[in-house]
Amino acid sequence: MTPILRVQDKISWAGFILGASALGAIVAIYAFEVISRYVFGAPTLWASDFVSFLLLISVFATAPWLTREGGHVAVTIVPDMLPAFRDAILRAGFLLAAGVCLWASWICLGENIYLYNRGTETLTTIRIPKWTLSAFITYGLLNSGLYFLRLAFQRGTPGAHDA
């Protein structure tokens, strides 16, 4: 494997750890909110906002690693019914998925730049710059698209792990 692909894998693994940590933080925040609200009668103002932010981060930070590992949604009825064309159908599907992800990441990048230039913030109790959240969407789509390209052009059976 080339060094650049190893770097992509390390970045994606770090994103996976970040996303998993975000899920853990969601659980902790909800537990704190429940105790704060029902035991002490003092609900937080920030818990719902942070859970929303962390949910977005968890989805888009983990998506590339899950794509690498074949954890994405895959409906394989057509390739399974046509075994002679299975590899070609899977490769075409990976190319289509790559195109959609890369196209969407390009649109998101433009939106990130727009949000940054305008200084747009979230309309939540805890206000943060929106681009800091939308950057995770761009990252997840871009890196997943690159993994779909790797899957489409890898040697051997498409979708088999290439570590």
Rank of each mutant, 00 (worst) to 15 (best):
T157Y: 01
T122Q: 14
P158K: 12
A97L: 07
L109K: 09
L133M: 08
T132R: 03
K130W: 09
L102F: 10
G119D: 05
L109R: 12
L95M: 12
G99S: 07
R150L: 15
Y114R: 10
T138W: 15
G159Y: 13
Y116N: 05
A135Y: 09
T138K: 08
F148L: 02
T157L: 05
I113N: 08
W103F: 15
D80F: 00
G159N: 14
Y139C: 02
L115D: 13
R127Y: 07
P83F: 00
A135D: 09
L96C: 10
T132M: 11
I107W: 15
I113H: 04
T157G: 01
Y139V: 08
A160I: 10
L102V: 04
L115R: 09
M81R: 06
R86N: 15
T138L: 07
F94N: 14
L142W: 12
G145Q: 03
I89L: 11
R150Y: 09
G140C: 08
L102N: 03
P158W: 13
A88R: 08
N117P: 00
R118T: 05
R127C: 06
W103V: 14
G93R: 06
S105W: 05
Q154K: 10
G93N: 05
Y116R: 04
R155W: 03
S144C: 05
I89H: 04
R118Q: 08
S105P: 06
L133D: 04
F148K: 05
A84D: 05
R155I: 11
T125Q: 13
E121S: 03
R118E: 08
L142D: 00
I128R: 05
L90N: 05
N117E: 13
F94S: 13
G99K: 09
L95V: 04
L95G: 04
L102G: 04
